[in-house]
């Protein structure tokens, strides 16, 4: 009996009569993981963008009489060391965090697809060169790479998205390249070539479309990585610069004060980051399970 529980990537396997079927643990009770994750993510998006409309408080306003106020009715999530409203900052911080992560994922995805497709469909020497370059890049720890670039470019939303995208694309590139290489050997791609199909046609019609579900799944995982990466950078002080808020930045500024009792300064941003990453992972896992099911059929 083959053991396919440890399989991380969806791959085709012949469903012989004697093969035991296993179901991916894709449901929590009655709610599917991808549905739950999607709804959770939507909730976070609504919180960050619709929240400020329902709770119109300035995240930068300083309330000098309410420094480090604990959560109560006027400030539901308390205030920080400068007397700023944590709930308002959490909402605005959510906008920055989610938007930058989303852009970074998109940049990483696009760059990865392009790079991988070029390597996978191009001539052998180009593939070898591009993959060698990729290995070199991967040999440098991504955090080191980010810290290096973050120290030499001005930090704003655009540069942060680009910076994160820079470390995001190699995984997607490798995946794309492998898929493209595998697809080249498929009989239906050989057939299309025999009919006179060019590289672009094959990439568009036979490879990209087949990869789409896999790409979507990986994009969700990538998004989770980006949220974590951005939060990490911000925690190191290399993210969105004060006084503007981001979830990681809130954690950073609250860390010291939480030790002396202002727990709300790290509990709520921490929860937000946790929920966002959970949402993306649930979405990814659920979609992966769906994909597995489809392939297995």
């Amino acid at each position: 009996m083959t053991d396919d529980t440890t399989r991380a990537q969806p791959t085709m396997h012949p469903g012989g009569l004697f093969q035991r079927r296993r179901r991916w643990p894709a449901t929590f009770g009655r709610v599917r993981a991808d549905m739950g994750g999607g709804m959770l993510f939507l909730a976070l998006v609504l919180f960050s963008w619709i929240g400020p409309l329902l709770y119109p408080h300035d995240p930068l306003a300083i309330h000098t009489h309410h420094i480090l106020a604990a959560p109560r009715s006027r400030f539901p999530l308390g205030t920080d060391a400068l007397g700023r409203n944590v709930l308002a900052r959490l909402m605005r911080g959510g906008q920055a965090t989610l938007a930058i992560s989303l852009w970074a994922s998109a940049i990483g995805l696009l760059a990865g697809l392009l790079y991988g497709m070029t390597a996978g469909l191009g001539p052998g020497w180009l593939d070898r060169a591009l993959m060698r370059l990729l290995d070199t890049l991967l040999a440098i720890p991504s955090l080191v790479l980010m810290i290096f670039f973050a120290s030499i470019v001005p930090l704003n939303e655009t540069s942060l998205a680009l910076l994160l995208g820079l470390v995001a694309w190699p995984g997607i590139a490798r995946l794309t390249r492998n898929e493209a290489l595998a697809a080249r050997e498929r009989d239906y791609v050989r057939a299309a070539r025999q009919f006179g199909a060019g590289r672009l046609y094959i990439a568009r019609v036979h490879i990209l479309r087949a990869m789409l579900p896999l790409v979507i799944v990986n994009a969700t995982f990538l998004m989770a990585d980006m949220i974590l990466g951005l939060s990490g950078l911000s925690f190191l002080g290399l993210g969105i610069q004060p006084p503007h808020a981001s979830w990681g930045g809130l954690l950073n500024s609250g860390a010291g004060l939480a030790v002396i009792g202002s727990w709300w300064l790290i509990a709520f941003p921490g929860l937000a980051i946790f929920l966002a990453i959970l949402a993306m992972n649930m979405l990814g896992q659920g979609l992966l399970a769906r994909l597995e099911g489809e392939l297995r059929e």
Binding site: M1, T2, P14, G16, F18
Partner: peptide, 13 residues
């Protein structure tokens, strides 16, 4: 004993 069509699925790799 059972002999399958595809021994690769029946033998541990």
């Amino acid at each position: 004993g059972l002999i399958f069509q595809n021994p690769l699925t029946a033998l541990s790799p």
